[in-house]
Nucleic acid binder design. Sequence first.
DNA 1: AAAACTAACTTAATCGGTTACGGAAAAGCG
DNA 2: CGCTTTTCCGTAACCGATTAAGTTAGTTTT
Lengths: 333, 333
Amino acid sequence: MVSMKEIAKNCNVSVATVSKALADKKDISEATREKIRKAAEDMGYMLNASARALKTNRTNNIGVLFVDSMSAGLAHEYFSEILESFRWAAEEYGYDITFINNRFAGMTSTYLNHCKYRNFDGVVIIVADFSSPQILELVDSDIPAVSIDFNYDHCSSVVSDNTKGLRQLVKYAAEKGHRKIAFIHGEPTDVTKKRLDGFYNTCRELNISVNEDYVIEGRYHDIDESYRLAKQLLSLREKPTCIIFPDDYSLIGTISRFREDGDDSLDRISVIGYDGIKMARFMGITTYRQDAQALGQLACKRLVDAIENPEGLCEHSVVAGELIEGRTVHEVK
Amino acid sequence: MVSMKEIAKNCNVSVATVSKALADKKDISEATREKIRKAAEDMGYMLNASARALKTNRTNNIGVLFVDSMSAGLAHEYFSEILESFRWAAEEYGYDITFINNRFAGMTSTYLNHCKYRNFDGVVIIVADFSSPQILELVDSDIPAVSIDFNYDHCSSVVSDNTKGLRQLVKYAAEKGHRKIAFIHGEPTDVTKKRLDGFYNTCRELNISVNEDYVIEGRYHDIDESYRLAKQLLSLREKPTCIIFPDDYSLIGTISRFREDGDDSLDRISVIGYDGIKMARFMGITTYRQDAQALGQLACKRLVDAIENPEGLCEHSVVAGELIEGRTVHEVK
DNA sequence: AAAACTAACTTAATCGGTTACGGAAAAGCG
DNA sequence: CGCTTTTCCGTAACCGATTAAGTTAGTTTT
């Protein structure tokens, strides 16, 4: 690999001159700068990130925590869209992204150690088990960090407006005349809590009495579970007229499984998804589209801010989504 | 950040001793090794990847080319599954993965330059415009590389068995009595070429005469296009009885759009997808599941082999998939 | 024309490890 | 008890950059 040393030799200058010439420092004459530039080009030279990082203590590399305990992860359109937009923004800012893991040289390690090892300039937590001590250790370290859809005290966060999401969905259903609205929510997480807040508060505001049998815990992205719970809801003496699902994916799966069963009871009531994945839009499902792109982009901006100004306060931003009106919520008298 | 120097001072040994102790070299006594280990642990020490890479010329980092010109990319389940399994395997082998791009410090650069800059030990090409000169430059460089679903002369490759895929699908349709089989294929790429081979050869073997109106070029992952072409096929004087789509995604989208139109003509013939995405399986679509997991895993193995033995010959592997029997291919008399 | 700048480099230290080589002390051997 | 091996650790060069500080020649100032 050709290094500055060889360029220096070739141009009869010192390595320092080469470095400064290529870095566009001012104390190099235009003539030598050009000579060096040309030599570098001709010799196929490229800067060495490791060497630079060693000296400058900056890697221009961002660590991405994206661990899918449930094998959702990349297969989850919402998260992969966030990752994609984050990545794009990072590249714009001149950063690369590397996945964080907790295996070092084959052995088990910690996320923090991995970040120290790679010397990431910053870290973004997109998907993870947010309550794990390893994550806490990471966000409490002095590495600039930003978390998505979760709030920590010591780092910036960007979260989707889940409360508003449920508010809009409930309001929409209510406008269509629904009063028996069920909500299959996901595992108890920050996100779920916010959604439940939105659900309960909006019901209260609209004077909709919440039947406790209608609010049940399921799992995100789990078709089997949603299917089971939907069946359960539809077997109640007093059936709900509308069911809000944890996400579009499980809703679509559930719908098709009901049809497979030859059971049209789900088609005869109203259903609502969450996320706004492409397929849901194609299928005309009423859902709340989370603005994954904005989330990823903003998270990146916040992280870069934190990197460039480590003394800055952390900011907590909420990103709104939008209701997508499909054809799965019917008017009731 | 705590370095070996500080541990050395703390333990009254030289930096070399610390390095060797932590690297489990044999010429350090068990006593000092333990003393150093403990100090490192207590001080929260972690190795510095840049420093190590500088000296050893190994980064334990693999560059991943994953560029979605068509905004498919991560949203494409097949590719994201490959990425996921590749990543998992890489971590097992002790490698991290970083996305390759062609922007350097905000400006436009080349993929190769980026790889030189990061000094990747190897490179995997998962999604890209395979014919771009930048990619060619990359695979022709001396960086160990492996490509997925595309063959280059100078690097190993792992490809899905597209010929077999189409063979199986055509055979299956034929067994169900279909003789008028249409094939909406994707853009002309290596993959498409193999599929066409499989399609034509199998038709010939089974004495199915191919109506040239039935074999038309569409685009992968493009619902609008597939929808348009399906309509076109169904408007032919002599309609096909079975249509093979470029992929599950566009098939599912097309089906739902037909239903939206109140057009049941697609439901009355047989349809076949490709990829075997989860949703397709839930919806009972007959398709060919590509073994994305095996592809990613094998690609990683090949790459690690190439890294560890740069003189080795490149290998070209073909990974079989399997036909998933759904309910979208009906018996014809 | 001597003093004071300025422009354009060079020198050398440094970042945090790795590793070939060397050397002293302890252990093994006859 | 001498001599050869081992064992264990230190010295120092090196990887490829960056950058503060120093140097030299040319230019300006007075």
